[in-house]
Design a protein around this nucleic acid. Structure first.
Lengths: 237, 237
DNA sequence: AAATCCATTTGACCTCGATCAAGACCGGAA
DNA sequence: TTCCGGTCTTGATCGAGGTCAAATGGATTT
């Protein structure tokens, strides 16, 4: 437990804690607990009483909802340096997790208890502001998701996904690897794996991309952007 | 401008300011500006530089997104006593509004400038916490929307809408009035007016509801709940 | 090499909700 | 009263994407 204090510095990777000073980090180091998850482990489920939130040190956590028939919609995939479920700190005592959380790979987390963390918050307006910023970003992201889901079609969402996940390199045609299995990406975009596959084929046929397994070459960025119709004022949340 | 100070008490209606003490309210009263909108007036548009947020004193504000073809998805309708666009305070200097805002009726608002408000925030952990709570509630609401949009069908969303907007009265069959035009409700549920109408007819045919213009009688709550499948752990955000 | 497992692709079909078009209804103005 | 502008309903058709089923392919094991 004492060495967790040393590790507190890595919390700075999270936007939430970026502005915290050393003494605040030290306090955080004292109150956080380590959590380790094997691939497939469930961290919490939708509706479960929520009294802590998490920082991801390594691995990947999938946040998702399930339909009564068992279909899964991935709301977000959380990677190293990110925090999640912070919002639940303020939903009541205790609140309820609005989603399920499951490890997609071996993952190491830090957990923060609601009660202890709220005390730290009251003391630190830096961390409060960081938390407001983090939640505001997530809010914006969700609004964009709703937009894509209601006002645009599956092809739009896939094109946007490709553009947003392509490595930044001027604006020339780009190569990229799909890091997550295609089925998982499909669940994020709220489409079936079959449809995902079909759309990739269509884009290939249109000459916009080339596909080789998980390797995708974006051949016509202009065409893709046209499909995704990203207004210039839009930031990629 | 001096009488706005007197009016600051009405801010307490907003969850955001509920915990603020009198001196804080007085400060808020000094920095806020009055804004009046006629029906149809646009307050701000998607992508526009954002340096203030709003409290609704009276009227109704529609927050929505537009597709390239001009279709509109209503994210939320804000009524008296509610605040909106607070999140944008933390998206940068200045951030961008993620949605359009338009008055649906003659509306009176108070506006708070980002720069001034952030100063108040830094001083008041009560208001910071109120703001975190407000954003956390909105976050939860959006996640529920995404769930309904991706994992459930239009009938589900409409049934849920009826149940959530019905006056609370034990669990007996209930009467209700649709306060907003049906087309507006449809845009909230992300369905076309025609489909909205057809689903109402279907529910009527199933004996779940009775419809007379804007007056709706819920005849079979159990049946509706069954359609909407509300898990018991779910709070109606 | 053969067998097994799983992710992905392809094909055939179907369903929900959108679209297009026409009426119905309802309130306000002349 | 008639006319006119909305909102709402109803009907007919269409299409994107879901579903079900089977084939393909790659990786790993035996």
């Amino acid at each position: 437990m004492t060495d967790t204090v040393k590790q507190a510095g890595e919390l700075r990777r999270a936007a939430l804690f970026a502005q915290a000073d050393d003494s605040q980090l030290a306090i955080l180091g004292h109150i956080m607990h380590e959590v380790t998850l094997a691939p497939g482990d469930t961290l919490f489920t939708h509706g479960q009483a929520a009294d802590r939130f998490f920082f991801v040190r390594s691995g990947q956590i999938k946040l998702f909802r399930l339909s009564p028939e068992g279909h899964e919609k991935i709301i977000e995939i959380i990677g190293p340096g990110q925090t999640f479920a912070e919002a639940v700190m303020f939903m009541g005592v205790p609140g309820r997790y609005p989603v399920n959380a499951q490890a997609m790979a071996e993952s190491r987390l830090y957990a923060f208890e609601q009660k202890q963390f709220l005390k730290v918050l009251a003391e630190s307006s830096e961390i409060s502001l960081g938390m407001l910023a983090a939640m505001s970003r997530r809010l914006h992201m969700l609004v964009n998701q709703i937009d894509g889901l209601t006002l645009q079609n599956a092809t739009y969402r896939l094109a946007l996904y490709l553009l947003e996940h392509a490595p930044r390199s001027g604006s020339e045609p780009t190569e990229m690897e799909l890091t997550t299995p295609k089925g998982v990406i499909a669940a994020q975009l709220a489409i079936q794996p079959e449809t995902f596959s079909r759309i990739l084929t269509k884009l290939k046929r249109l000459g916009l991309i080339e596909v080789n397994g998980n390797h995708i070459a974006l051949r016509d960025l202009r065409g893709l952007r046209n499909l995704a119709y990203v207004p210039m004022s839009e930031d990629s949340a």
